[in-house]
Design a protein around this nucleic acid. Sequence first.
RNA 1: GCUAGCGUAGCUCAAUUGGCAGAGCAAUGGUUUUGUAAACCAUAGGUUGUGGGUUCAAUUCCCUCCGCUAGCUCCA
Length: 731
Amino acid sequence: MLKVSLPDGKVLEFDRRIRPIDIAMEIGPRLAKATLAAQVDGQIVGANAFLPDEGEVALRLITARDPEALNVMRHSCAHVMARAVMRLHKGIQLAFGPTVENGFYYDFQTEKPLSEEDFPQIEAEMAKIVKEDEPFERIEMDRIEALQFVKDLGQGFKVEHIETGLAEHGHVSFYRQGEFVDLCRGPHVPAAGAIGAFKLLSVAGAYWKGDATRQQLQRLYGTAWFKKEDMEAYLTKIEEAKRRDHRVLGKQLELFTIDPMVGSGLILWLPKGATIRRQLENFLYAKLLDIGYQPVYTPHIGRIELYQTSGHFPYYAESQFPPLYSHPMGGVVQELLQLWAKGEIDDDAMAARLEGYMHTNVPARIRPHVPNYEKLPSSRQKIAAMETWLEKQERYLVKPMNCPHHIKIYQSKPRSYRELPLRLAEFGTVYRFEQSGELNGMTRVRGFTQDDAHIFCTEEQVAGEFRGCIEMTQYVLKTLGLTDYRVRLGFRDPASQKYVGSVETWQRAEDALEAVCRNMDLPNLTIERGEAAFYGPKADFVVADCIGREWQLGTVQLDYNLPSPQRFGLEYVGADNHPHQPVMIHRAPFGSFERFVGMLIEHFAGAFPLWLAPEQARVMVVSQKVEDFGRQIETRLRQAGFRVTGDYRAEKIGSKIRDAQLELVPYMFVLGGREAETGQVALRDRLEGDLGTMSLEDAIKRLQAEVEARTIRQVVKGSAGIGGKKEENAY
RNA sequence: GCUAGCGUAGCUCAAUUGGCAGAGCAAUGGUUUUGUAAACCAUAGGUUGUGGGUUCAAUUCCCUCCGCUAGCUCCA
């Protein structure tokens, strides 16, 4: 006897094996037809899966109207895609095919690479399968049986997955749809006909089990929706995101550029972009002074010893720009020593190699000099002598981070507890050699400026200081109208070796951080293990822009390690006249100006609020006859503190307005004979159009008020209208 | 770094099976002196990313390198 309770409170009783679809049928044939899956005691299962024989379950039938149905259908669509690909191509090895936000993918190993040219054919085959409407049939087997089954199918990835990933499962399930059978947990829609609109989006490489050392597969991405309109809306949204791409807008609006001759991932800020950045810098700088930070400046390079002490070198060697050596052989010796350390060169070969450089192979002036090298008794000692030589050379690193420099400022004199918290701030530019495939416009670069600061404080001050950092970040985000964000706590992954410091220290730091955050009632606080910096746990602000994409921006990090005796050994003299170790907080509310401005460009779709707009107003004359009057107004606006330009070309006023609109200039001063006579100005708002005639003073007051309040007048959900049609510009 | 794709004028894009590299916008010169989203005429602009190969002939086919795009891996 099975008792089934439905969401409306009704309880049905069955004394036979029954499936959700049967229950739906009892309620009504139309419901049965619409039922795609079911929720049993909170878990999503297939509509054809048998319910337990006895006991009590809560059942909810899922139709296309329920959000859960979409994922079930998308996963079924992934199977249909895989089936279509296997029909069209020989020798396909199936890997995984899960759903993702807005769609699904399937990983294959193929004999011939797939390309977008194959999409129409695959889509046509999929459409055929959907039309045939064959059912998805669940088959369960025990592990041994299943293993033989996938071996017989010749599906090597599935064999491996059953042997390793599913090692603990006694039984596994398959889904059959026509000739296509796939190892799969399910659930699926009852039959392929339930799949609505779908489209293949892209093909890309992906590593088997996400491991870069394993073979690379072909990943086919697709999207699927119940209604064609939903898919159209989704595709439109993708188009919209493309239209406000900061790389496109950055070029059109002349905000920044990247030149291959300067280098990949190195941003050249054009005057307009630089203006926006400067406004943000000024805004932050004023705030920093206001709340007790002290500005400092530090150089762009530092001796390698500095980073050896901090622990950055050589552990991040592959993501640093190569070190600068004063001796020409420095880099070669360093490289050899690294290979030797990895065991790729044995002791004797290493010693012989170095000896060659020292005495025979290279001109005297660039030889490393180690006295009596050849008299050293063993290869080991020769290598050690070489290491000593290398360490004596001057070696510099382009700085990958600012903290070691700020630590040295802290250590520039003895510190008393009376000086703490000491807050050192710098807009510090750092360089990291990111992988070429990772670079992306302004959001992932190789040189960037952090709005960095390091706070040195006592253990007792940690909570208050940490809280202050989070509040500052919140203030900054709020000012820019970025109200939709979540806070992610990054803790250490106990299984990983990449972290420095003792477990106890980490525990203390993580507890302190979590306590502060819980206390502040931050939105959607999550904890993620393995997301910590190597020296301490952190709180990251993940900001959603106006079309819902997430960006990791600000960060606050707690650090008990760099100040420790094993690293820099920071101290202050306490009230007890004894030395104590301070705690460090690293924080950057924007993260970096590059990424932040890149995100802002997309968030505002290039239409910055007046206080940030590179060009706040443009004076334009109806006729060149009134150019002198126009220039007077332009000068007076500039004197009033505005970033203003003038358009005195022999163009019609409509043309000048159009240009200013497309360049997203917030205000236009339209001046003709009437204004020249009365001395007044006709003001035009980019959003609202003609505001009519007023005195210059009134216009200035209006604009000044908007700047001072840092008003955000619009966050454009649609396109900003760059190159678009007029209808699209309606707000 | 890996897989796939792309690279034509400042920008957006054309160029039949390999057969004289073109348009719009922008720029420059001129005419027009204009009232709230595009006046008109003319001119100039290119070693088709780079280097090599195949061919009578390469923007087109093949290879190298550089750069870009999507995804994967990475992100102190």
